[in-house]
Amino acid sequence: MNDELIKKRIEIIAARIQEINGEVPEIIIGEPASLEQITQTEEKLGVKLPDSFKTVLTEFSGHFSFRWFLPDNLEQPDEFREIFSGTPNWSLDLLPQFEEGRKGWIDAVFPNPEDSYDVIWHNKLAFCEVGNGDYLAFDLEDGTTDAPIVYLSHDDGEGHGYKIANHFIELLENWSRIAFVGCEDWQWLPFTTSPTSRIDPDGEAANRFREWLGLGI
């Protein structure tokens, strides 16, 4: 992972949002996490964190948050009319809290692993709370040392179960190319073509989005 490139893209995105009179209320790039902190969190969770996630935690940041919002009066192309913000975030310290929330949804609403909708909530590790009850999560189904990222919707969202990236580093590299839009599924869905396509930062939609917003990333 190229940490400096990701930081540069964050600077470019923030500067452009401010240039068009949008808001950038928060950019937090915390200190990298230690291996001891990761081990302690793994013990609390009872699972090993995916390799690429640990790489980002130890080499880039253990706590990251970047929030931006487009101005209300900005005229948007129809295909991007649902995009209004970017809110990527993760925190090693908050993983147990997010997992408690995911498991709470399973216990209360999605308990049946034989149900095609419910099962998507099972065998996951939530790392990003979307804010509306949904989560971004690692899919631990195959038991490998790394894991793809999927979307968990609690209310029949179109993106439920969509594979967003093959691993965490890919997520950051591709998501940053579309200005970290989201995290709600309706914001990043324009940059996918199927439930397994992942976010495509080089597709026609992504190129049109960057051209419209004036982003050279």
Score class of each variant (00 low, 15 high):
85 S>P: 07
188 W>L: 01
203 G>H: 08
143 G>F: 09
144 T>R: 13
96 P>K: 07
140 L>S: 03
107 D>R: 14
176 S>P: 01
87 T>K: 13
93 D>S: 11
157 G>R: 07
192 T>A: 00
195 P>I: 01
170 E>F: 06
142 D>V: 04
89 N>C: 04
163 K>E: 12
101 G>N: 12
188 W>G: 01
198 R>I: 01
132 N>C: 15
178 I>T: 03
167 H>N: 15
127 F>E: 04
83 I>A: 08
201 P>W: 07
185 D>H: 02
186 W>D: 06
99 E>F: 05
92 L>H: 02
201 P>Y: 07
176 S>C: 03
119 V>M: 13
170 E>C: 06
141 E>M: 11
128 C>T: 05
87 T>S: 12
83 I>K: 03
95 L>N: 13
188 W>P: 02
135 Y>N: 07
114 E>D: 15
77 P>M: 04
204 E>L: 05
138 F>H: 13
179 A>D: 08
157 G>I: 05
78 D>T: 15
98 F>Y: 14
204 E>P: 06
130 V>G: 10
100 E>A: 14
83 I>P: 08
193 T>D: 00
185 D>I: 01
89 N>P: 00
96 P>S: 12
124 K>M: 11
165 A>H: 04
108 A>E: 12
127 F>Y: 15
113 P>R: 13
143 G>I: 03
192 T>S: 00
146 D>F: 02
79 E>R: 10
180 F>W: 12
143 G>Q: 06
143 G>C: 09
169 I>G: 05
148 P>G: 01
116 S>L: 09
127 F>H: 04
139 D>W: 14
146 D>E: 05
116 S>I: 07
101 G>Y: 09
90 W>C: 10
102 R>A: 10
171 L>V: 12
86 G>R: 07
165 A>C: 03
167 H>G: 12
202 D>T: 09
198 R>T: 04
114 E>L: 14
111 P>G: 09
82 E>S: 12
118 D>S: 13
149 I>M: 05
145 T>L: 15
172 L>G: 06
142 D>R: 09
139 D>F: 15
197 S>F: 03
99 E>L: 04
84 F>M: 13
190 P>E: 02
155 D>W: 08
184 E>V: 06
195 P>N: 02
166 N>L: 03
104 G>F: 12
110 F>Y: 15
171 L>K: 07
158 E>G: 13
77 P>N: 06
166 N>C: 06
190 P>Q: 04
101 G>P: 07
141 E>I: 03
201 P>N: 07
183 C>D: 12
191 F>L: 01
141 E>S: 15
191 F>E: 02
194 S>V: 00
130 V>E: 15
202 D>P: 05
157 G>S: 10
204 E>Q: 14
163 K>N: 11
202 D>N: 14
189 L>H: 03
91 S>D: 15
129 E>R: 11
175 W>K: 03
198 R>K: 04
118 D>L: 08
177 R>W: 00
123 N>D: 11
179 A>Y: 06
181 V>P: 00
125 L>W: 15
143 G>V: 05
137 A>E: 13
183 C>S: 13
